[in-house]
Amino acid sequence: MQAAAQTRYIAQPQGTSVKVDGTSTAHDWEMEGRSIGGYIEFGPKVKLDAAQTTIPGLNDGKVPATVQAHIPVTSIHAKVEHMPDVMDHLMQEHLKADQFSQIQYHLTEMTFKGPHAPGKPFAFDTTGNLSIAGVTNKVSFPVTIELLDAGKIKVNAAVPLKMTAFRVDPPAPNIGLGLMRCGDDIKVIIDWTLKERN
């Protein structure tokens, strides 16, 4: 007898974005990208049903799932009017993009935060390994998954990070009016749309 198939969701370009919010001694800044590749694969018995309060197939509240996500460093762009290329190159240099072209994440643990309110997104706590600029750290953050139509889901997360935790020096560009130093704390906001593989 054939085992029930796992359900794999593949990253989609429409409805996917990553936003990075930061601070500096001069002003807040923002970067944005539209590429998050990878997939989410749920165990064979896991089924997200918008009408249900629980999720079948869990192991003591843990979701059997595999998540691999990657973001090309060069796909993230500064949201500035003037000299965006300079700011992008500055970011790429600090993230050692020539050696580590992708920011990578893989999930190690996913816990369902039930009960689910029918019609609302599902809520989870996650832990995983995040690799930036060649440094890998264990990171934990809450995630919601919203069921869309046509077999699509949308993952939302807001991930607070410290640049120095990944041995990234906060940039301090000389912008002509004096030195501006970026703050260590950043927030990464993820909107990730995936579609069930047929």
Partner: peptide, 18 residues
């Protein structure tokens, strides 16, 4: 007109090389 350098705290130089 000088543009910010592509490295931290470097003097004003030129457009980074793509």
């Amino acid at each position: 007109a000088p543009r910010p350098a592509a490295s931290s705290e470097a003097p004003l130089t030129k457009i980074p090389i793509g």
